[in-house]
Every structure is written in C-alpha cells, then in structure tokens.
C-alpha cells in the first residue's frame, strides 16, 4: 500500500507492505539511528516521535503513519548534539546503542512535563533500558541538561 507522511520535515511517499512496522520502514529509509533491542516493546531503543508523541516504532504499523509527522534522531541533530554533549560529558553514552531512543524520549519529556522533579524524570524515562551505564550518569546528564538555562544566566 502507498502511504504519505512527513519524515524529519520532508514529505515522503512510500510503498509499504500492510504489516510492515514503522521501525523497518525507517531503517529502510536510512534512519539508522533507530535501533531494535528486544522485539517485545520493553527496551525503548526504537523510540521515535509520531505527531510529537514518543512511540515505539517496533510496534507501530507503518500503515498507521499515513498522514503523520514522524521524527527520528536524524531530524533533530542539533538537539541531539546539545543533550548528547551532556551525556558524553558524563561518559554516560557508553556503547551508544540505546542513546538515540533515550534522547528522543528526553526531548518528548522536555516538551510534555512542566517541571522536572527527579522521580518524575525517572518515571518518564523508565521505558528506556540501558545495560551499560547503570542509569546514574544518564540522570546526571538529564538534570544538567534540563537546568542548562539556569546555569547560563549565572554565567
């Protein structure tokens, strides 16, 4: 079937099989930042934004993306680099395989939440598993990133 959607700001017309997942479609379209870690919707590696909402692309039908606005890390390189620099400053990207999914969800969280208490942040990001970092460094990076405006004023 034919679908039409916006991928990272560009209008795409694409032929997709009826049961293709968005994950497969995105990798097919060269969005290699999107990773698969589990196939059972537990790991968060395949997180992308669909109409601004963080979704697991591994369980999202490509057919349903018709008419939608899809954003992967490829489409938010500036933001990725900005948050990513906080992550790297902690050494918390480690192998980097889960970083794209985490970053997409951090960006969704930044937009959705109106305050960033530690427990709220942890709960929001609980669906993003990481096996390297033990999460503490990621959390330090997220906290520093979210309060970066405050620091800027001090300087």
């Amino acid at each position: 079937m034919q679908i039409e959607f916006t991928l990272n700001g560009r209008l795409i017309y694409e032929e997709t099989s009826d049961d293709e997942t968005l994950f497969h479609l995105l990798r097919r379209k060269g969005c290699y930042s999107v990773k698969c870690g589990c196939e059972t919707e537990n790991c968060g590696l395949c997180t992308v934004l669909v109409n601004g909402v963080s979704r697991l692309s591994c369980s999202y039908l490509a057919a349903r993306a018709d008419d939608c606005d899809v954003v992967t890390l490829e489409g938010v390189q500036k933001e990725a680099e900005e948050f990513g620099s906080f992550l790297a400053a902690e050494g918390a990207e480690q192998c980097g395989f889960c970083s794209p999914g985490l970053i997409m969800n951090v960006l969704a969280m930044e937009k959705e939440l109106d305050s960033y208490e530690k427990e709220k942040v942890k709960e929001y990001l609980a669906g993003n598993l990481c096996r390297c970092s033990g999460y503490m460094g990621q959390l330090r990076a997220v906290e520093k990133y979210l309060s970066r405006g405050e620091n800027r004023n001090e300087c």
Partner: peptide, 21 residues
C-alpha cells in the same frame, strides 16, 4: 581527567556506526 570519548558525537547523534548500519 574525564575527557569525552572520541566517538561520543557520532554515538549521540545516531550515526550509522554499528554492524547492521
């Protein structure tokens, strides 16, 4: 000293650097 990893930027911007990529 805690320098950043040399591959950090490629990793956090999701560049195709892994086997399947």
């Amino acid at each position: 000293t805690s320098v950043k990893k040399k591959d950090a930027k490629a990793l956090v911007t999701g560049k195709p650097v892994f086997t399947d990529d």
